[in-house]
Design a binder for these strands. Sequence first.
RNA 1: GGUCCCAUCGUCUAACGGUUAGGACAGGUGGUUUUCAAUCACCUAAUCGGGGUUCGAUUCCCCGUGGGACCGCCA
Length: 464
Amino acid sequence: MSFVATRFAPSPTGPLHIGGVRTALFNWLFSKNKKGKFYLRIEDTDKERSKEEYKKQIIDSLNWIGINYDDEEYIQSKNIKKHQEVANELLKNGFAYKCYCTEEEIKEQKEKCKKKGIPYVYNRKWRDPKNVEIPNNIKPVIRFKSKISGNSILKDLVQGEVNISNSIIEDFIILRQDGTPTYQLSAVVDDHLMKITNVIRGDDHKINTFKQKQIYEAMKWSVPEFAHIPLIHSEKGSKLSKRDKASTLEDYIKIGILPDALRNYLLRLGWSHKDKEIFTLDESIKLFDLPGVGKSPSKLDMSRILSLNEYYIKHLDEKELFKFLKIYSKKFKSDIDSSKEKSIIKSISFLKNKAKKLEDIYQNSQYILNDKIKISEEDLKLIDNSSKSIIKDFLIKFEKMPEINKDNLEKIVKGLIDKHKTNFKGVGQPLRIVLTGSRFGPGIYNILLSLEKDVIISRLKDYK
RNA sequence: GGUCCCAUCGUCUAACGGUUAGGACAGGUGGUUUUCAAUCACCUAAUCGGGGUUCGAUUCCCCGUGGGACCGCCA
């Protein structure tokens, strides 16, 4: 097996969105599967929009979901000089040329084409400037001499063979008027320098590949393999953008999605292995491959994410789950008081059964976390006089209880059912309301066993 | 508009010419139950349309139709 290196190359112009995370995941998985390298490259050559905070956020995001990269992150802007050198070499060797067209001139041309209804391609005015005078008041851009005739074929590892006519690829700019390199150049030079063997990226880059390949060829560099993965669509069915509601990783973290659940969801979005739905990290590394990637775009499905998350919440080691809950609560809700930790840990085994996300566990443990509980008007109505007498009787027995365990509690409850000629619900419901503030709580023994004795007594006393 | 890509249940997908078209999520019905859940069992639901090729097409080819991406001195 030959050596493999992949990279994820986001631009730090906003929070990482879910499509980017999947691209990173696929690259990472591919390299791990091949026992190769995976790098992170921050493409920050757009000075205007790139921000340090976003760079940090991207790194945090990858850490959160468990994607680790080799070496330090690679900062593209640090390599601008090298990009410029390559541009000059292309210029020297006749693969590129200076173009003195002004932006206005280009704009005019585009409008003309639009009016005529014909597709715009730069007219190559300065490609062969024999009979044109070079203006000395205009700074030129450097354009790449793109192929004019014939066809190009891309052998894409996901899409198969893609064949396009070279005439639709214009002489694209590689160095701007201010001398800075554009994406098309920088990406190629960096990928070459980083010895990237497989470029796995979104389908929206496919046309770029035809430009970039020409740079590799002009420089006589070996061309990496390309794999263009289909985009993730929003519920509307179009490319996911930052404006879509649940589009960034942060959106999922803040409702309490577990990293493993999202990793598993993203893995299965556009990739499959037979009928298998749940993949451990190791399994996904072992099984991931490019032929398993589908060609059609897929839509985001929140209920599916939630369902997977529910699965991981239920199957995760409870100590681990508590750790996640603690971190989550501190970051997005309020810190779990250390005096309440014991109760929460005791309760997590049943709390997790009605949770699809960490947020649910947090919500459902409010009766433990808060010293005072609120009972809604509606629930309060259910605490009538007969309920109160049940609570009173329960309290008397409970206070005298030598040891709080399920057997002893069951004895009390059974006794009360007989005495008050009611059923389990008749006893359980008032206790649940008074103890948790809600009709819809955990099982009554679970509540009784998880709350501190004095808390139970004081809550019951309020309603006896 | 031009170029390219895509097309199986509502959604994610399996079936690499021969299956009663499978699984998962969602939805529905019922069992269990201590409320809400959870859980168990069962059910509904798809090959975009039209032509070929073939003994046989979800699968291969062509044409429609629909959806999407790209068309920046952004990446």
